[in-house]
């Protein structure tokens, strides 16, 4: 554990809590892509199956359980409790265009051809693209509430900090997880455009992020 990894995990947790509280308090999931949230729930489910097979640390176990619970709680807010506010028409990204190639790739490129490893690999690849329905929705509607952009900022910062964690671990421990690093770089690239808009528009206080 190093400072980059720990702060990355904290940012991830902060992002998920921001989103959950935003929906809970406003009693609305307007502007939120239910598809991205479903994909993240699928990411956590397929990655954390090792909860049943391996014990790493109390920290590891607790964080995994918290991520899983919050992911499903968020999905249930969007699709059940506040489904009237769900804008399914703007959330029109075709997730099969992500799921099919990601599933195929996880069978082809993995560390070990076992069910758990293939599912872990699937979750890593899927996470790198799971935010696309949300970014697509923002592009389509042309705006996002600032609280939604704070959520995206922390989510993007999380994987960016993991990049620093991997550089650190490579130097300190000789550890290099090729699948996670390559996917993490791809995932971070998707946020670059958003980061630019976030710094130039949201943080200069326009309340909402509107696209040019």
């Amino acid at each position: 554990m190093n400072i980059f990894r720990l702060s990355g995990d904290v940012c991830h947790l902060v992002a998920i809590i921001i989103l959950f509280l935003k929906i809970w308090r406003s009693k609305s999931c307007a502007g939120i892509s239910g598809k991205s949230q479903l994909l993240f729930a699928l990411v956590f489910t397929t990655r954390y199956l090792d909860l049943f097979t391996a014990f790493i640390s109390i920290y590891n176990t607790v964080m995994k359980v918290v991520f899983l619970v919050l992911a499903y709680a968020t999905v249930s807010l969007i699709y059940f409790r506040f489904r009237k506010s769900y804008d399914s028409e703007s959330d029109s990204f075709r997730v099969e265009f992500l799921l099919v190639p990601v599933a195929g790739l996880s069978f082809l490129e993995n560390y070990s051809f076992t069910p758990l490893e293939i599912l872990w690999t699937f979750s890593i690849y899927l996470e790198s693209v799971a935010i696309l329905p949300q970014l697509f929705m923002i592009t389509k509607t042309g705006e996002a509430e600032s609280i939604t952009t704070h959520y995206l900022f922390f989510l993007g910062l999380y994987r960016t900090l993991y990049l620093a964690n991997w550089v650190w671990r490579y130097h300190e421990e000789g550890f290099f997880d090729q699948i996670a690093v390559v996917s993490g770089v791809v995932q971070t690239i998707f946020y670059c455009d958003f980061f630019y808009l976030y710094f130039t528009r949201v943080l200069r206080g326009s309340g909402k992020m509107t696209l040019p």
Binding site: D50, S112, T114, W120, Y162, D177, A180
Partner: peptide
């Protein structure tokens, strides 16, 4: 356990 790969990251 059917895997010898450990993933300690989240």
């Amino acid at each position: 356990d059917d895997s010898d790969v450990d993933h300690d990251e989240l």
